[in-house]
Design a protein around this nucleic acid. Structure first.
Lengths: 338, 338
DNA sequence: TTCCGTCGTGGAATCGATTCCAATCGCCGT
DNA sequence: ACGGCGATTGGAATCGATTCCACGACGGAA
């Protein structure tokens, strides 16, 4: 593969001049520029990004560590992150933690070793000591969706409080009183927040939330299945199950179907995170939709600000309720996002 | 951030010795090794992967260019690719082409510029001249799922012929005669193959496949919607629509629902690619399942073979039919993959 | 005792770019 | 005609590792 020296030789100039042309440095004669460009073309020369990064100490690359690629919400997030990053001249390397702290650390370490310019993280399991160190070491970093408290790191996320309140009100209006939730890991911020919002909304309506109605999940399908089975085994099962993410909702649906429980007649189902498939499930699932595209854009911009020396902003966007039929009679404002 | 020189100074040895310890070169005294390791520990030293790559001319990184991250099939593929690569000591950088040739080329170019050790590609739109050049230039490369004909590049894919034949037989057995297909882009191998397999299977059963029953799609949801609407507008609409991938099936379902067409009573639906949600759609969708995990593993191994100088193998694995209820009465062997 | 092979070690070159610094060349003003 | 300034240019240092090569010490064989 041709190097900058070959180009210099071909064009009859020094490597310094070639480099200047490539980086559009002003002081190069028109004539030299033309010759260099011709040589570049003739040789099909492409600068070696590795060498360039070593010298300039920047890679124009962002790391994105997400908790689970199989979760459509994160996939969507990743897609928009890459899009915005590309618009700003960065590449993105995705690390999938699969909700496993060890994998998460592995990816963070690998990304740091490769000297990415900045890190976008959605901490699985409440983050890790390594993550804390990285943040403190001054590596530009931004949290998306989930975050770690007590760190001076910008956070870009959706606030589901209002939407959860709307959801509970909707369920209450439908006549449901016994509402259960499948929570995410207590260590994650989103895991906690959603439960708290749910609890608060219920208290406001004077509804009780017994411990037995709080299932422990880990944001993955299997845990949704297990928690749902436990609910169904209760002497007095809940009338509605609210899953704190879409994969656990899938698991819940699996469990319900396996037991032959009719949705929503016997038990209703709602989920956090809206995805295209919820329109076509049986029945269509009422869900809380997060603005993934906006979150992704805001997060990338905050990170770029941090990297390029500007002051980044934490951003909180509202999530919103999308009512479908999985909790009872169709509501008048039933509408899909898609 | 501490460099190898700092470690050398701290341990009181030369950088050469430090490097030897780090790369477990045999000729280092026990005593020096201990001192170096202690210094590494004390300084929290981590080798700079960029510098190392420049010198060794290898990055221990694989590029994976997929056609569409939002397609759960590719997401699953990506997940297993990363898993297998990690087991073999490689990292993976994912490029999402969104079924756009220009984006695809952008990612390939970026990956090459970063000197990834090898490339795993599922060509969107039949590949590109750039892709052909890269393949010919000797960059280790392996095709997954889709491929470009006429290149000496290993291909790892699933063969759907048998499963499509099973599907058509199943539909025929259910009494359906007018079967339509929403094809993928003619430029892609999978796009063509699936149509051809379908056509062949129908011919064997003496069924006609009029041109009007072949919808042109691009593997994305919107095209599935459009093609389905066109089918429904036909004087004699098909009895079953077979979508060549899961996103177009989603689009088809959208269109069917919008028109108030009952599935499977009025029109049946089947899809290529099976995903967890198909179990819970209304109705559950009959689909052809590809062994994503096995494909991913085989592809990574083939690429690693190529990179490390062994002889890689092309692999073709069978896809299989999973019958559900979207084409008519439940079959006896109804069973989910999940 | 002398010679030679092994082992452990450090100096220095190298990978492919970027960039500082000094040198050269016109050309202008006085 | 001369000093000087701006525009171009090339040489060489540098980024942080790996690795070739030479060198000294030491042990065993003759």
């Amino acid at each position: 593969m041709a190097g900058i020296k070959d180009v210099a030789a071909e064009a009859g100039v020094s490597v310094a001049t070639v480099s200047r042309v490539l980086n559009s440095h002003p002081s190069v004669s028109q004539e030299a520029r033309v010759r260099v460009l011709a040589a570049v073309e003739a040789l099909g020369y492409r600068p070696n990004a590795v060498a360039r990064s070593l010298r300039t100490a920047q890679t124009r690359t962002l790391g994105l560590v997400i908790s689970d690629v199989l979760n459509p919400y994160f996939t969507e997030l990743a897609r928009f992150v890459e899009e915005e990053a590309r618009a700003l001249g960065y590449s993105v390397i995705i690390g999938n933690a699969d909700e496993r702290p060890d994998l998460q650390d592995h990816h963070i370490q690998t990304l740091i070793d490769r000297r990415i310019d900045g890190l976008l993280v959605s901490p699985a399991d409440g983050g890790s000591p390594l993550m804390r160190d990285v943040a403190r070491s001054g590596t530009p970093m931004v949290f998306v969706d989930r975050w770690m408290p007590g760190l001076d790191v910008p956070v870009v996320r959706a606030d589901g409080t209002g939407a959860v309140k709307d959801l509970v009100a909707h369920l209450h209006g439908l006549g449901h009183r016994r509402l259960a939730i499948i929570a995410g890991p207590a260590a994650t911020t989103t895991g906690n927040e959603r439960v708290e919002a749910f609890r608060a909304a219920m208290r406001e309506l004077g509804l009780a939330l017994p411990d037995a109605y709080i299932g422990q999940g880990d944001f993955q399908a299997a845990s949704g299945r297990r928690a749902t089975e436990r609910f169904l085994d209760l002497p007095e099962p809940p009338e509605v199950v609210f899953a704190a993410d879409n994969l656990m909702a899938l698991g819940a649906l699996d469990a319900l179907r396996a037991r032959g429980v009719r949705v929503p007649d016997a038990v209703g189902l709602a989920a956090f995170d809206d995805i295209p498939w919820f329109v076509h499930t049986d029945p269509p699932i009422t869900a809380i939709a997060q603005p993934a595209a906006d979150l992704a854009r805001a997060a990338v911009r905050a990170l770029a600000d941090l990297i390029e020396g500007r002051t980044p902003q934490s951003v909180t966007l509202p999530a919103r309720l999308v009512v479908r039929r999985s909790c009872g009679e169709a509501a008048p404002n039933q509408r899909s996002t898609w």
